[in-house]
């Protein structure tokens, strides 16, 4: 279903610091030197990561901040091209990496449902057909014609979650989004996620809540400094991860 083959990802941390018009001309004029000079600020966010995910499996990712979890998800979602290695995927992906990224704050909720749906790759017919379902799930019936600019952040998140989860994707990528909205909506969104998972969707799941991971995932990938430290059954790995993290 998903095959990640020796994926490595290099970032150049110095880019922003050095980049100026002056630097640009210096670099362009001294092409030769640039090739010899190796940047000191190279950073390998991922190095040589390989694993496979079967259809219908729910995989959790754990690791400290900056371990490469989000980068790995972005590579799988096709947002970033890996520096080395490749990813084989069959099935359509629904990336829920950051909710509401495609919203235009000046448009109303109604207009944003169409815009954001289009960003996520839905067809026009599909959105029209599911429009009522999206609205009723988000419970924002009374605010449909209000510009999203005037929404509270919780309302924006509810709308975004409702749009993103309306599809039945074959592969679902979830990066820390289950904690949106108020308590009631959190409950509702978790139920929704569980029903999606139960429906045979392959899920890649990043969270810092080990309880969530333990209860939702079949297997866990433990990332440490861009490398896979361990892969295995979720309970086992989570406990070991917790121990190591707290001892440090």
């Amino acid at each position: 279903m998903i095959k990640v083959n020796n994926v490595s990802m290099k970032f150049n941390l110095g880019i922003e610091k050095n980049f100026s018009l002056k630097q640009f001309f210096i670099d362009t004029l001294s092409l030769k030197r640039k090739k010899n000079k190796k940047s000191k600020s190279e950073f390998w966010a991922l190095s040589d990561v390989s694993f496979e995910v079967e259809k219908g499996e729910v995989i959790g990712f754990v690791g400290s901040n900056g371990a490469g979890k989000s980068t790995l998800l972005k590579v799988i979602a096709g947002v970033m091209k890996p520096t080395k290695g490749n990813v084989e995927i069959c099935g359509n992906i629904c990336p829920m990496i950051e909710l509401g990224a495609g919203f235009d704050m000046d448009l109303t909720a109604r207009e944003n449902i169409f815009l954001n749906g289009a960003v996520l790759g839905y067809s026009k017919d599909f959105i029209e057909q599911k429009f009522d379902e999206i609205v009723s799930f988000s419970e924002l019936q009374d605010f449909l014609d209000v510009p999203v600019r005037n929404f509270s952040s919780g309302m924006v998140a509810r709308l975004a979650f409702s749009i993103a989860t309306i599809v039945d994707p074959e592969i679902l990528i979830v990066d820390e989004i289950l904690s949106v909205g108020d308590i009631a909506f959190q409950q509702k969104s978790e139920t929704k996620m569980r029903s999606m998972i139960g429906g045979g969707t392959t899920v890649l799941f990043v969270s810092h809540s080990l309880n969530q991971i333990k209860s939702l995932c079949d297997r866990v990938v433990w990332l440490d400094h861009g490398k896979i430290k361990k892969i295995g059954p979720s309970k086992e790995i989570c406990e070991e991860y917790e121990k190591t993290m707290l001892n440090n």
């Binding site: 000046d106 448009l107 207009e111 815009l115 960003v119 790759g121």
Partner: peptide
């Protein structure tokens, strides 16, 4: 073809926002 709907939505958005 796949992204033509997105394209139309983006153009529509620009019109809506421009004269809002």
């Amino acid at each position: 073809k796949k992204y033509s709907f997105l394209l139309s939505q983006l153009v529509l958005r620009d019109f809506k926002v421009k004269y809002k």
